[in-house]
Design a protein around this nucleic acid. Sequence first.
DNA 1: AATTATGTTATAGTATGCCTATAACAAAAG
DNA 2: CTTTTGTTATAGGCATACTATAACATAATT
Lengths: 123, 123
Amino acid sequence: MLIEIDFNSDEAIYVQLQNQIIMGIAMNLIQEGDSLPSVRQLANTVGINMHTVNKAYSILRQEGFIQLDRRKGAVIAIDMDKARALLEMKEQLRVLLARGRCKNISEEEVHVLVNEIYNEYGR
Amino acid sequence: MLIEIDFNSDEAIYVQLQNQIIMGIAMNLIQEGDSLPSVRQLANTVGINMHTVNKAYSILRQEGFIQLDRRKGAVIAIDMDKARALLEMKEQLRVLLARGRCKNISEEEVHVLVNEIYNEYGR
DNA sequence: AATTATGTTATAGTATGCCTATAACAAAAG
DNA sequence: CTTTTGTTATAGGCATACTATAACATAATT
C-alpha cells in the first residue's frame, strides 16, 4: 500500500498518515491480518521521523482501527464501537453538510456523492 | 443567534466560530441580509480576543460565506462556487466515510444520517 | 547464544500556529 | 465631533508538530 505525504499541506503529517491508512483499510488495500510496515521502516521510506509514524499508529490503535502485535505487526479493525462511530460521524457530517448547504448543494447531490464514494470500495 | 465556545476543545476557537456561523446560515438562523455582531462586540460577549473573531470573519469572507459591508456588516452567502464546494465536500467525505466503513457503517446508514441532518434545516 | 529489529518511552531542541495584549489608522455612524 | 467600525502592525506566551538521540525489554533472525 502506497503512502504519500504532502509536506506543503497544512494538515499534520501524522494526520495524513492516519487518513491514508484508514482509507486503505476501507478500500481493502489492507486486509484483516495484513501487516503495516514497522515504525522505523515506514518513517524511512516516507522520509520522516520515527516518532511521527509512531504517533499515527498509536492513535489508530487507540481509536480501534488497528491492533499492534509485536510478532505479527498486524492490522485489525475489530474494536467495533459502532454506536460511538455513528455519533461522531453525525457530528462531522453536520458541519460538512452545512458548508455545502450554504453553497446550495442539495440533499440529493450529497446522496450521489456518498453513492460514488461507496462505489470506490471494491466490496 | 447564540454562539458558544468550548475552551476545553482541541478545536481552535476561530474554527468553532466559523463552524457555528456556517451552521447558523445553513439552518436559517441568520438570513441573507442580517448582520453579525461586530468584531469587538462578539469578542466581548464571548469573552475572547478581537483578533480571534476577526480571523474567523476574514476566513468566512475569503471562502465566500459572508460579505463584510462597513455600513451594514451584512451576512451574505452568494459567492456560489458550487463546483469547488462539491469537490471539497467529496474530499472530506472520503476520509469521513472511510472511518465509518472501518466500523462497519453501511451506505444506507450514511444516507439516513444525511437525511436526518437535512431535516434539521427548516425546509 | 548472539545479533538484529521491534515497540515503547524519555528528553530536548526548533518551528509553527493559536491566542492574547496594545496600539494605531481611515472610514462610516451616531 | 465623538464613537464605532474594519483593518493592520507588533509582540509575547503558550501549545503542538516534527525532529534528533538515546535507551530499554522483547521478539525475530542468524
